[in-house]
């Protein structure tokens, strides 16, 4: 996971090739047009498993 790439204005983000590949894969499997909001949700979901793993408590040994 990389922090958002710095751009000219605060709050702006630049998507890297991994993000675009993930979106393209989603689009390839979409039989109907998808909205920009759906793509945003897909991007946010991309990191969800990682966040869950990071937030999960460590197993006691």
């Amino acid at each position: 996971m990389t922090p958002p790439e710095a751009t000219g204005e605060p709050g702006q983000v630049h998507l890297n090739d991994e993000d675009i590949a993930y979106l393209m894969n989603f689009l390839r499997n979409a039989p109907q047009p998808v909205t920009t909001q759906q793509l945003i949700d897909v991007l946010r979901r991309q990191l969800a498993p990682t966040h869950e793993l990071e937030g999960a408590p460590e197993a006691s040994s």
């Binding site: 922090p3 958002p4 790439e5 090739d17 991994e18 993000d19 993930y22």
Partner: peptide, 11 residues
């Protein structure tokens, strides 16, 4: 290349 963390970026 790892995915960009967009959790702090608004819609």
């Amino acid at each position: 290349i790892t995915p960009t963390d967009v959790s702090e970026v608004d819609n």
